[in-house]
């Protein structure tokens, strides 16, 4: 058995230092719901585990003065659900985060881990993309920010530089008339991984869409920002033609694989159906419905 060490630093600098010094032999531990499975299956053999949950910034949820939110990378889904305001402002993001696994998993799993695991089917990622979330990362070279959609590079791979750690997400302030939603299609009602996952964020003014973003998961090597779908909705009053165009854009964006969870034909068809349904929910929320 190879030597393995565990560190639970209290500061980010300490964590970054240890992580970078390990030169790729280290793994970050947030909720651990992916890492421990990978270790058990022999897919991950870290020499160093850096537990980031003792770093205050990593587990904080802060409502910013401008109305935005900052979420630490290791915040669990359960903590997010317990926050008094977050779910009111970003119900779609919260739904997505809390679709990751069961209650047991929600008590541990974090949006930061979900993003860094870089599964094309990560539930929180399409919702974060739709929300226009920005990721803060810190590495030996310092801090930088990148849009969520820029982080995944392919199944299990990210565009983080060596030694970089995701610190948190910043979600922008919400103008009046905004709403978001996340829907996924899974073979079973709970405890499953998406065959298609789709997040929508809308802002409406007088019934006209003034802002629209669509994130689409599980249909390509990475979760996608489908700009054409957002553009198809922009300026519309969500007429059937605009919805059809946005659904078509989602289907066109699909580059899925046939695998144990679904065929190409099925995933593509369902992507369009989910777009229309998620838009309907987001629009209802934007207009003050639930």
């Amino acid at each position: 058995m190879a030597e393995i060490r565990y560190l639970a630093p209290r500061t980010l600098d300490e964590a970054v230092g240890a992580f970078a010094a390990a030169q790729g032999a280290a793994r970050i531990l947030a909720g651990g719901t992916d890492l421990l499975v990978q270790m058990r299956n022999g897919l991950a053999k870290p020499g160093l585990i850096v537990d980031i949950k003792k770093i205050a910034e990593m587990t904080e949820i802060a409502e910013l003065p401008d109305g935005g939110f900052r979420i630490g990378a290791a915040v669990s889904g359960a903590m997010l659900a317990e926050h008094p305001r977050f779910g009111q402002v970003w119900p779609g993001v919260l739904e997505a985060v809390n679709l990751i696994g069961s209650k047991q998993v929600q008590g541990r799993a974090s949006p930061g881990g979900n993003l860094c695991n870089a599964s094309p089917a990560g539930d929180s990622v399409p919702a974060m993309i739709a929300a226009g979330a920005v990721v803060t990362v810190q590495g030996p070279e310092g801090r930088r920010q990148m849009p969520v959609e820029a982080v995944p590079a392919g199944p299990g791979r990210t565009n983080l530089r060596p030694g970089e750690i995701v610190v948190g997400f910043t979600l922008p302030p919400r103008p009046a008339g905004s709403g978001d939603a996340y829907l996924r299609m899974i073979p079973r009602t709970e405890m499953d991984i998406a065959v298609v996952g789709l997040g929508v964020s809308l802002t409406l003014a007088g019934g006209t869409v003034t802002h629209a973003r669509v994130g689409l998961g599980a249909v390509a090597p990475t979760v996608l920002l489908v700009e054409e779908a957002g553009n198809a909705l922009l300026g519309s009053r969500l007429e059937e033609a605009a919805l059809d165009a946005a659904a078509a854009a989602c289907r066109a964006a699909c580059r899925p694989i046939n695998d144990k969870r679904g065929t190409i034909a099925y995933r593509t068809k369902v992507a369009g159906v989910l777009l229309k349904r998620a838009v309907a929910i987001a629009a209802q929320r934007a207009q003050g419905g639930n």
Binding site: R188, T189, E190, M191, I193, D259
Partner: peptide, 15 residues
């Protein structure tokens, strides 16, 4: 390739 409950789905409490 369905070698565990993550991919092989027996009914759960909501199914």
């Amino acid at each position: 390739r369905t070698l565990g409950p993550a991919t092989y789905k027996i009914p759960g409490s909501r199914d």
